[in-house]
């Protein structure tokens, strides 16, 4: 009898451990995916900004490739914001708590970015690209100001 209870507790303990480490792995994967997405966005900026500054010639193919890479890296975005990926936990993240306390604001900031990317994607020539780009840059800036922490 006692051994049955002990076994039961042991099994439950193993299960709980397993579950929590699985959740931990999920949280870690989410945070890493967010970071990979942001890296791809940063790489996209590195392709576009030199054109805006006049340091490189306009190259629509390069822009489209960078956007496609960012879209691919960010495809799972909606599923990466679990409660266990908040700041202040065991895992390091530059995400701010405001993402979870102001979901509407975060949504709006993401929406501004999506809209700006779509406009850059739709731009067919240099002039329309240069007209569309500032909103994209501002969307990075605006979201980071509210929802990204200082260096960790």
């Amino acid at each position: 009898m006692v051994s049955k209870i002990a076994m039961g507790l042991f099994t439950a303990g193993v299960l709980a451990l397993g579950l929590s480490s699985a959740a931990m792995a999920d949280a870690k994967a989410s945070i890493e995916a967010r970071e990979a997405c942001m890296k791809a966005n940063g790489a996209m900026m590195k392709v576009m900004v030199p054109v805006i500054k006049g340091q490189k010639p306009y190259d629509k193919a390069a822009n489209d490739a960078a956007i496609a890479a960012a879209e691919a890296a960010c495809a799972g975005w909606a599923g990466w914001w679990g409660e266990d990926t908040k700041p202040g936990g065991d895992l390091k993240t530059e995400a701010k708590a405001e993402i979870w306390t102001d979901p509407a604001g975060f949504e709006a900031a993401g929406g501004a970015y999506m809209k700006a990317v779509a406009a850059v994607k739709a731009s067919a020539d240099e002039a329309s690209f240069k007209a569309a780009f500032p909103d994209l840059g501002k969307s990075c800036q605006g979201c980071h100001e509210k929802f990204r922490q200082a260096d960790q």
Binding site: P134, C140, Q141
Partner: peptide, 10 residues
């Protein structure tokens, strides 16, 4: 960051 300079917004 509007011109891609990372770390100047947060």
């Amino acid at each position: 960051e509007a011109m891609g300079y990372d770390g100047l917004a947060s």
